[in-house]
Amino acid sequence: MSSGRTLLDIVGLTKSFGGLVAVNGLSFNVKEREVVGVIGPNGSGKTTVLNLISGAFRPTSGSIHLSGQDITRKPAHHIARTGVARTFQLVRVLPGLSVSDNVMAGAVFGRRRLWRQQARSHAQSLIERVGLHDKHRLPVSSLTYIDQKRVELARALAGDPQILLLDEWLAGLNPSELQTGISLIQSLSEEGRTIVLVEHVMDAIRTLCDRCIVMNSGQLLAEGSPDAVLSDPAVITAYLGDD
């Protein structure tokens, strides 16, 4: 998998909020068709990294390149059009819109910029892709939690992103939903999607990720295959404390 070209290249990424340094000199890269997990204890800066990549926050210093294009301080909408799509830690669907319109939002304004019938049918195919076959006409507020997460995923995919950022997409699902969720992401990866996921569910990390980035206090603690980093003594100490 690591033979592909580098898609996302992050160098010396730093973000401070007032005096608090949330991300401190972080560097890593993601290759094409790779699934990279970002893990670490609570408050280690994982979600901030996703927010910096997607343009929700502006980095204090450092650089982010996507396929060689500098997206470091670009506004979020520009980054989305360049090819970064994301889901949110607390699911964010558009409550006043139907399932179909929710997904169309990604198709119309994302990298593909489709419109009318093309956008509609593209959205429809993604709604089926994430397993919401007969629900496209429903108001999104009537859906269950996992179905809302599916809508959010379909919306992110609809923009045909170069890279997909999933922020704890599997959190809050019950055990059977979790299995469904994991196989859905796995099938996306088999399609050749490049994915960065922030996740606490270790089973998912082991099943899905080619590589893991472990963060602690905003810094890179370890990097490598899921099995290797999860048995790394430094990583265990970071999760469990010093004793």
Binding site: H77, A85, L94, L97, D101, M104, V108, F109
Partner: peptide, 24 residues
């Protein structure tokens, strides 16, 4: 139009609007 659709999305959630690529 696209603009009208964009406005409906902005009215629902401006953060999402930005992240799907709308210059809000």
């Amino acid at each position: 139009s696209r603009l009208g659709f964009a406005m409906r999305i902005i009215g629902n959630d401006e953060t999402v609007a930005r992240h799907v690529g709308i210059n809000t």
